[in-house]
Write a protein that binds this DNA or RNA. Structure first.
Lengths: 217, 217
DNA sequence: TAGATTGTTAATCGATTAACAATC
DNA sequence: TAGATTGTTAATCGATTAACAATC
């Protein structure tokens, strides 16, 4: 079902296709050509056809692609019909935002537990999910099948928590902490969200543009 | 000062260099070779030397790179000594997390105002910064030089807010909303943080790995 | 059928890796 | 000096774009 060895650039574009096709679907558009998609999304038509053909021939010569069929197909390729059990560690501002903000169920996940070591937070609920004491991590994961962990802890705590999660047997991570998990373990799957890095890149882009407009180099 | 036409892959790696060099500095390490950095960071030594040489010859043959000098140099390349005035729109969970969580001052920015249209939030303070009514956006930006906007509004509000910010003259955006700014304006600088996309990519990676271990294709 | 648009191969472009002379 | 490691050029690899035959 899944084709293998799809390159990282292609995979990164899939959610964007999914988003745009969803919008077209909402607008009631049922058919679209790679050329029209190109205009809307800013990828070249050639690249769109190449990308889609990694997974199969979803289009029809002379007519283009069926929006709904393609939308569903990409959802399936992404694996969104799954329901991976995820736990979130760190119920600070960021952890709370992630817990409340994300539509996990529409993205292939279910949030089954939140952990924190702040007594003021333990036993409260966020989005109807109980906040447990971090001490209970091992016991919880023994009782509840846990497929993935979301790391929203400060950098100082990340190393210890990561070791514990790894020892429990968790191998899939959504990592918001400033700690490079893949350096220490090589048999894990990590998707990083490094907000600091992102902000620094914005800073670079702005500074670079300013330098270019000031002609005095 | 800034070299021009640095490729996007190189720029994306800069914050990571900065982070690792900062750690070495904390540990009191004063000198490092591209080979050692390679082991720590997971980039090839060749790539590290290529990357750094985009900006200048910071190393010394036979000895390697001075950690502190290189750290400062990359900070300067990123433009972190700047102090761009930024406003944040949307004081929901995510906006609040971003406002509280980020060390703006160490990343070239200063957060000068937060905006929301929820009466319960207006005139409260987050991190000592006042939350203003979104209606006051134009007036505020007239009074206060505003270099960048951080968009933490829901998708439904993003389009209207983006138009208003653009009309005010703001051209630099840190975009957390699910709205593609660069489709509508072509003279702006945007750095996107699409959490939904990131979660879907994690879903793909997990599903893909599971398919590979189930041999039944 | 004629027009349109895909699927796919070939050409180009760019990024990464390898190699090595320069030099500390 | 000899050993080590950079800076930089050349070779390779991979991704994007262009082109066009297949076909709806």
């Amino acid at each position: 079902m899944h084709k293998k060895n799809i390159s990282a650039p292609v995979i990164k574009r899939l959610p964007r296709y999914y988003r745009f096709l969803g919008e077209l679907l909402d607008k009631g558009i049922s058919r679209i050509s790679s050329r029209e998609l190109s205009d809307k999304m800013g990828f070249s038509a050639s690249q769109i056809r190449q990308d889609l053909n990694c997974f199969g021939g979803f289009g029809q010569q002379g007519f283009g692609y069926p929006v709904e069929g393609l939308y569903n197909e990409i959802g399936r390729i992404l694996g969104l019909e799954n329901c991976y059990n995820a736990i979130l560690i760190g119920a600070g501002n960021l952890g709370k935002a992630v817990a409340v903000h994300m539509s996990f169920e529409q993205r292939g996940f279910r949030l089954i537990g939140i952990f924190d070591n702040d007594p003021a937070k333990i036993n409260t609920t966020i989005r109807n999910i109980r906040v447990f004491d971090t001490d209970e991590l091992e016991a919880f994961c023994k009782e509840n099948k846990t497929d993935a962990a979301i790391l929203c802890v400060p950098k100082t705590a990340a190393h210890e928590i990561a070791d514990r999660l790894y020892n429990i047997g968790i191998r899939n991570y959504w990592n918001f902490s400033h700690y490079d998990l893949s350096i220490n373990y090589n048999d894990i799957i990590v998707e990083n969200v490094h907000l600091n890095d992102s902000l620094m890149i914005l800073c670079y882009k702005i500074s670079d543009a300013n330098d270019a407009s000031d002609q005095n180099e």
